[in-house]
Design a protein around this nucleic acid. Structure first.
Ligand SMILES: [Mn+2]
Ligand SMILES: [Mn+2]
Ligand SMILES: [Zn+2]
Ligand SMILES: [Zn+2]
Lengths: 150, 150
DNA sequence: ATGCAAATGCAAATTATTTGCATTTATTAT
DNA sequence: ATAATAAATGCAAATAATTTGCATTTGCAT
Protein backbone atom coordinates (compact mmCIF):
# COMPACT_ATOMS: atom_id res chain seq x y z
CA UNK A 1 0.00 0.00 0.00
CA UNK A 2 2.82 2.43 0.67
CA UNK A 3 5.57 3.48 -1.68
CA UNK A 4 8.73 4.57 0.00
CA UNK A 5 9.99 5.59 -3.40
CA UNK A 6 10.37 9.25 -2.43
CA UNK A 7 12.62 8.58 0.55
CA UNK A 8 14.81 6.27 -1.47
CA UNK A 9 15.13 8.96 -4.09
CA UNK A 10 16.13 11.54 -1.50
CA UNK A 11 18.71 9.24 -0.05
CA UNK A 12 20.14 8.37 -3.42
CA UNK A 13 20.40 12.03 -4.42
CA UNK A 14 22.36 12.71 -1.26
CA UNK A 15 24.74 9.88 -2.07
CA UNK A 16 23.57 7.74 0.82
CA UNK A 17 22.86 4.04 0.79
CA UNK A 18 19.25 3.02 0.92
CA UNK A 19 18.69 0.96 4.03
CA UNK A 20 15.44 -0.12 5.59
CA UNK A 21 16.39 1.80 8.74
CA UNK A 22 16.85 5.07 6.88
CA UNK A 23 13.72 4.69 4.86
CA UNK A 24 11.81 3.79 8.00
CA UNK A 25 13.10 6.84 9.83
CA UNK A 26 12.21 9.19 6.99
CA UNK A 27 8.82 7.53 6.91
CA UNK A 28 8.21 8.10 10.63
CA UNK A 29 9.28 11.73 10.38
CA UNK A 30 7.06 12.32 7.40
CA UNK A 31 4.06 10.82 9.16
CA UNK A 32 4.60 12.90 12.28
CA UNK A 33 2.76 16.20 12.46
CA UNK A 34 5.32 17.48 14.92
CA UNK A 35 9.08 17.47 15.30
CA UNK A 36 9.95 14.45 17.44
CA UNK A 37 12.90 13.32 19.54
CA UNK A 38 15.31 10.57 18.54
CA UNK A 39 13.89 8.34 21.21
CA UNK A 40 10.35 8.85 19.94
CA UNK A 41 11.49 7.87 16.48
CA UNK A 42 13.06 4.80 18.03
CA UNK A 43 9.97 3.82 20.04
CA UNK A 44 7.81 4.45 17.03
CA UNK A 45 9.93 2.10 14.94
CA UNK A 46 9.79 -0.58 17.60
CA UNK A 47 6.00 -0.32 17.75
CA UNK A 48 6.02 -0.97 14.02
CA UNK A 49 8.18 -4.02 14.58
CA UNK A 50 11.13 -2.47 12.85
CA UNK A 51 14.27 -3.60 14.55
CA UNK A 52 16.78 -0.81 14.99
CA UNK A 53 19.29 0.43 17.50
CA UNK A 54 18.96 3.78 19.22
CA UNK A 55 22.46 4.79 18.21
CA UNK A 56 21.58 4.11 14.60
CA UNK A 57 18.61 6.41 15.02
CA UNK A 58 20.85 9.14 16.38
CA UNK A 59 23.48 8.58 13.71
CA UNK A 60 20.91 8.56 10.97
CA UNK A 61 19.10 11.67 12.14
CA UNK A 62 22.40 13.49 12.41
CA UNK A 63 23.39 12.34 8.94
CA UNK A 64 20.08 13.26 7.37
CA UNK A 65 20.30 16.64 9.06
CA UNK A 66 23.76 17.19 7.60
CA UNK A 67 22.33 16.38 4.16
CA UNK A 68 19.46 18.79 4.77
CA UNK A 69 16.85 16.08 4.41
CA UNK A 70 15.91 16.56 8.04
CA UNK A 71 15.75 19.58 10.34
CA UNK A 72 17.03 19.47 13.89
CA UNK A 73 15.00 21.70 16.15
CA UNK A 74 15.77 22.64 19.72
CA UNK A 75 12.95 24.15 21.65
CA UNK A 76 13.52 26.09 24.88
CA UNK A 77 12.80 24.02 27.92
CA UNK A 78 13.07 20.73 26.06
CA UNK A 79 16.32 18.97 26.83
CA UNK A 80 16.06 16.70 23.80
CA UNK A 81 16.63 17.74 20.19
CA UNK A 82 13.65 17.27 17.93
CA UNK A 83 13.69 16.28 14.28
CA UNK A 84 11.33 16.79 11.38
CA UNK A 85 11.32 16.39 7.63
CA UNK A 86 12.92 19.37 5.94
CA UNK A 87 10.42 20.78 3.48
CA UNK A 88 12.94 23.42 2.46
CA UNK A 89 10.77 26.33 3.55
CA UNK A 90 11.88 29.09 5.86
CA UNK A 91 9.66 29.05 8.90
CA UNK A 92 9.09 29.89 12.53
CA UNK A 93 7.48 27.98 15.33
CA UNK A 94 4.45 28.85 17.41
CA UNK A 95 4.65 26.78 20.56
CA UNK A 96 1.94 26.18 23.14
CA UNK A 97 3.60 26.49 26.52
CA UNK A 98 0.94 24.24 28.03
CA UNK A 99 0.53 21.25 25.70
CA UNK A 100 3.84 21.76 23.88
CA UNK A 101 2.11 21.62 20.51
CA UNK A 102 4.23 23.18 17.77
CA UNK A 103 2.75 25.00 14.79
CA UNK A 104 4.70 26.01 11.73
CA UNK A 105 4.46 29.59 10.56
CA UNK A 106 5.59 30.25 7.03
CA UNK A 107 5.27 34.02 7.01
CA UNK A 108 8.41 35.91 7.99
CA UNK A 109 8.01 39.45 9.35
CA UNK A 110 11.75 40.02 9.54
CA UNK A 111 13.02 40.44 6.01
CA UNK A 112 13.18 44.22 6.03
CA UNK A 113 14.33 44.31 9.59
CA UNK A 114 17.31 42.13 8.76
CA UNK A 115 18.43 44.66 6.16
CA UNK A 116 18.10 47.55 8.61
CA UNK A 117 20.05 45.58 11.15
CA UNK A 118 22.85 44.90 8.67
CA UNK A 119 23.22 48.63 8.09
CA UNK A 120 23.20 49.45 11.77
CA UNK A 121 25.50 46.73 12.95
CA UNK A 122 27.63 46.02 9.86
CA UNK A 123 27.02 42.33 10.46
CA UNK A 124 26.47 40.19 7.36
CA UNK A 125 23.27 38.48 8.43
CA UNK A 126 22.78 34.92 7.33
CA UNK A 127 19.64 33.83 9.13
CA UNK A 128 17.53 33.91 12.22
CA UNK A 129 15.50 31.79 14.52
CA UNK A 130 12.14 32.92 15.80
CA UNK A 131 10.05 30.94 18.24
CA UNK A 132 6.82 32.38 19.52
CA UNK A 133 5.28 31.16 22.74
CA UNK A 134 1.69 31.22 23.86
CA UNK A 135 -1.40 29.28 24.77
CA UNK A 136 -3.27 27.45 22.06
CA UNK A 137 -7.07 27.94 21.92
CA UNK A 138 -7.73 24.56 23.54
CA UNK A 139 -5.36 25.16 26.43
CA UNK A 140 -6.83 28.63 27.00
CA UNK A 141 -10.23 27.02 27.49
CA UNK A 142 -8.90 24.30 29.74
CA UNK A 143 -7.15 26.85 31.93
CA UNK A 144 -9.93 29.40 32.48
CA UNK A 145 -12.84 26.93 32.51
CA UNK A 146 -14.59 28.63 29.57
CA UNK A 147 -15.55 31.88 31.30
CA UNK A 148 -13.36 33.90 33.63
CA UNK A 149 -11.44 36.17 31.32
CA UNK A 150 -9.01 38.73 32.71
CA UNK B 1 37.39 49.28 45.64
CA UNK B 2 34.32 47.25 44.88
CA UNK B 3 31.01 47.25 46.67
CA UNK B 4 29.01 44.08 46.33
CA UNK B 5 26.16 45.90 48.02
CA UNK B 6 23.90 45.64 44.97
CA UNK B 7 24.12 41.85 44.70
CA UNK B 8 23.41 41.42 48.39
CA UNK B 9 20.40 43.66 48.02
CA UNK B 10 19.10 41.61 45.09
CA UNK B 11 19.54 38.40 46.99
CA UNK B 12 17.83 39.76 50.07
CA UNK B 13 14.88 41.02 48.07
CA UNK B 14 14.45 37.57 46.60
CA UNK B 15 14.44 36.04 50.06
CA UNK B 16 17.76 34.30 49.56
CA UNK B 17 20.61 34.08 52.01
CA UNK B 18 23.66 36.14 51.20
CA UNK B 19 26.62 33.83 50.78
CA UNK B 20 30.02 34.61 49.41
CA UNK B 21 29.42 32.09 46.60
CA UNK B 22 26.24 33.77 45.46
CA UNK B 23 27.67 37.23 45.61
CA UNK B 24 30.76 36.05 43.76
CA UNK B 25 28.67 34.44 41.02
CA UNK B 26 26.56 37.55 40.54
CA UNK B 27 29.78 39.53 40.45
CA UNK B 28 31.29 37.34 37.73
CA UNK B 29 28.15 37.51 35.63
CA UNK B 30 27.98 41.27 35.97
CA UNK B 31 31.59 41.68 34.91
CA UNK B 32 31.14 39.45 31.86
CA UNK B 33 30.20 41.19 28.64
CA UNK B 34 28.71 37.95 27.34
CA UNK B 35 26.48 35.19 28.64
CA UNK B 36 28.79 32.48 29.99
CA UNK B 37 28.49 28.80 30.83
CA UNK B 38 28.35 27.38 34.34
CA UNK B 39 31.80 25.95 33.93
CA UNK B 40 33.20 29.30 32.86
CA UNK B 41 31.72 30.86 35.95
CA UNK B 42 33.36 28.11 37.96
CA UNK B 43 36.79 28.52 36.34
CA UNK B 44 36.54 32.25 36.69
CA UNK B 45 35.87 31.89 40.39
CA UNK B 46 38.79 29.54 40.83
CA UNK B 47 41.10 32.00 39.06
CA UNK B 48 39.98 34.56 41.61
CA UNK B 49 40.85 32.12 44.39
CA UNK B 50 37.25 31.76 45.39
CA UNK B 51 36.64 28.21 46.53
CA UNK B 52 33.40 26.79 45.22
CA UNK B 53 32.00 23.53 43.91
CA UNK B 54 30.74 23.15 40.37
CA UNK B 55 27.42 21.78 41.58
CA UNK B 56 26.98 24.84 43.73
CA UNK B 57 27.54 26.94 40.65
CA UNK B 58 24.85 25.02 38.79
CA UNK B 59 22.47 25.13 41.72
CA UNK B 60 23.02 28.81 42.24
CA UNK B 61 22.62 29.75 38.59
CA UNK B 62 19.42 27.74 38.43
CA UNK B 63 18.13 29.38 41.59
CA UNK B 64 19.01 32.89 40.47
CA UNK B 65 17.35 32.16 37.16
CA UNK B 66 14.19 31.05 38.94
CA UNK B 67 14.24 34.33 40.88
CA UNK B 68 14.76 36.26 37.65
CA UNK B 69 18.03 37.72 38.79
CA UNK B 70 19.78 35.79 36.04
CA UNK B 71 18.84 34.80 32.49
CA UNK B 72 19.54 31.37 31.12
CA UNK B 73 20.30 31.49 27.42
CA UNK B 74 20.63 28.56 25.07
CA UNK B 75 22.19 29.31 21.76
CA UNK B 76 21.82 26.95 18.80
CA UNK B 77 24.86 24.79 18.32
CA UNK B 78 26.13 25.34 21.86
CA UNK B 79 25.56 22.32 24.04
CA UNK B 80 25.98 24.26 27.26
CA UNK B 81 23.49 26.70 28.72
CA UNK B 82 24.77 30.22 29.14
CA UNK B 83 23.92 32.67 31.90
CA UNK B 84 23.91 36.42 32.20
CA UNK B 85 22.66 39.07 34.58
CA UNK B 86 19.01 39.83 33.98
CA UNK B 87 18.70 43.54 33.33
CA UNK B 88 14.94 43.14 32.97
CA UNK B 89 14.85 44.34 29.39
CA UNK B 90 13.25 42.46 26.53
CA UNK B 91 15.90 41.71 23.98
CA UNK B 92 17.17 39.59 21.13
CA UNK B 93 20.59 38.27 20.32
CA UNK B 94 22.77 38.91 17.31
CA UNK B 95 25.28 36.10 17.16
CA UNK B 96 28.43 35.88 15.07
CA UNK B 97 28.54 32.38 13.62
CA UNK B 98 32.31 32.59 13.36
CA UNK B 99 33.62 33.98 16.66
CA UNK B 100 30.45 33.25 18.65
CA UNK B 101 30.29 36.80 19.92
CA UNK B 102 26.81 37.70 21.17
CA UNK B 103 25.34 41.19 20.89
CA UNK B 104 22.21 42.33 22.65
CA UNK B 105 19.52 44.03 20.59
CA UNK B 106 16.97 45.99 22.52
CA UNK B 107 14.68 46.93 19.67
CA UNK B 108 11.83 44.51 18.99
CA UNK B 109 10.31 44.46 15.50
CA UNK B 110 7.62 41.98 16.48
CA UNK B 111 5.12 43.78 18.65
CA UNK B 112 2.54 44.41 15.97
CA UNK B 113 3.17 41.08 14.37
CA UNK B 114 2.37 39.31 17.62
CA UNK B 115 -1.04 40.94 17.68
CA UNK B 116 -1.76 39.93 14.10
CA UNK B 117 -0.69 36.43 14.89
CA UNK B 118 -3.00 36.26 17.89
CA UNK B 119 -5.92 37.16 15.65
CA UNK B 120 -5.00 34.66 12.99
CA UNK B 121 -4.19 31.74 15.23
CA UNK B 122 -6.31 32.45 18.32
CA UNK B 123 -3.26 31.72 20.41
CA UNK B 124 -2.74 33.91 23.49
CA UNK B 125 0.84 34.92 22.85
CA UNK B 126 3.08 35.35 25.87
CA UNK B 127 6.49 35.89 24.38
CA UNK B 128 9.03 35.06 21.78
CA UNK B 129 12.64 34.32 21.23
CA UNK B 130 14.55 35.81 18.33
CA UNK B 131 18.17 35.02 17.59
CA UNK B 132 19.80 36.49 14.53
CA UNK B 133 22.89 34.92 13.01
CA UNK B 134 25.56 36.47 10.91
CA UNK B 135 29.18 37.49 10.58
CA UNK B 136 30.50 40.34 12.66
CA UNK B 137 32.52 43.02 10.83
CA UNK B 138 35.81 41.65 12.14
CA UNK B 139 35.08 38.10 11.04
CA UNK B 140 33.95 39.30 7.61
CA UNK B 141 37.38 40.89 7.16
CA UNK B 142 39.21 37.82 8.39
CA UNK B 143 37.30 35.59 6.04
CA UNK B 144 37.60 37.50 2.77
CA UNK B 145 41.10 38.90 3.38
CA UNK B 146 39.90 42.49 3.08
CA UNK B 147 39.07 42.48 -0.63
CA UNK B 148 37.32 39.71 -2.50
CA UNK B 149 33.65 40.57 -2.14
CA UNK B 150 30.98 38.48 -3.81
C1' DA C 1 25.86 32.66 71.82
C1' DT C 2 22.31 29.17 70.23
C1' DG C 3 19.33 26.89 67.07
C1' DC C 4 17.84 25.67 62.81
C1' DA C 5 16.71 26.00 58.14
C1' DA C 6 19.11 26.78 54.16
C1' DA C 7 23.42 26.43 51.55
C1' DT C 8 27.48 23.97 50.30
C1' DG C 9 30.77 20.20 49.07
C1' DC C 10 31.55 15.87 47.48
C1' DA C 11 30.61 11.71 45.26
C1' DA C 12 27.49 9.26 42.76
C1' DA C 13 23.56 9.26 39.55
C1' DT C 14 21.14 10.68 35.46
C1' DT C 15 20.14 12.07 30.75
C1' DA C 16 21.08 12.76 26.14
C1' DT C 17 24.18 11.76 22.92
C1' DT C 18 28.46 9.83 20.88
C1' DT C 19 32.07 6.51 19.78
C1' DG C 20 34.94 2.15 18.89
C1' DC C 21 34.78 -1.92 17.01
C1' DA C 22 33.06 -6.34 15.27
C1' DT C 23 29.50 -7.85 12.15
C1' DT C 24 26.25 -7.21 8.51
C1' DT C 25 24.48 -5.18 4.32
C1' DA C 26 24.00 -2.35 -0.04
C1' DT C 27 26.11 -1.37 -4.09
C1' DT C 28 29.54 -2.01 -7.73
C1' DA C 29 32.20 -4.62 -10.65
C1' DT C 30 32.87 -9.21 -12.46
C1' DA D 1 24.35 -14.39 -9.80
C1' DT D 2 28.85 -13.79 -7.16
C1' DA D 3 32.35 -11.70 -5.11
C1' DA D 4 34.67 -7.58 -3.42
C1' DT D 5 34.43 -3.67 -0.59
C1' DA D 6 33.03 0.39 1.44
C1' DA D 7 29.48 1.93 4.18
C1' DA D 8 25.91 1.02 7.70
C1' DT D 9 24.45 -1.19 11.83
C1' DG D 10 24.32 -3.18 16.57
C1' DC D 11 26.05 -3.38 20.89
C1' DA D 12 28.49 -1.98 24.76
C1' DA D 13 31.06 1.39 26.67
C1' DA D 14 32.32 6.35 26.87
C1' DT D 15 31.33 11.17 27.23
C1' DA D 16 29.40 15.69 28.47
C1' DA D 17 26.35 18.45 30.89
C1' DT D 18 23.70 18.63 34.57
C1' DT D 19 21.39 16.90 38.79
C1' DT D 20 20.81 14.65 43.23
C1' DG D 21 21.44 12.52 48.06
C1' DC D 22 23.42 13.19 52.01
C1' DA D 23 26.70 14.72 55.52
C1' DT D 24 28.65 19.04 57.00
C1' DT D 25 28.84 23.95 57.30
C1' DT D 26 27.00 28.56 57.38
C1' DG D 27 23.86 32.69 57.61
C1' DC D 28 20.61 34.78 60.17
C1' DA D 29 16.85 35.30 63.53
C1' DT D 30 16.29 34.86 68.35
MN1 LIG E 1 11.90 34.50 9.45
MN1 LIG F 1 11.10 40.88 20.62
ZN1 LIG G 1 -1.85 23.94 24.02
ZN1 LIG H 1 32.67 37.28 14.67
Amino acid sequence: MKTNKDYSENLKQSGLKITKQRVAILDILDKSKQPIAAEEVYENLKSNNISINLSTVYRTLELLTSKNLVLKVSIDGNSKSLFETNNMMHKHYLICTECKKILDIYYCPLENYEKELEQETHFKISGHRLDIYGLCPQCQKKINGGKNNI
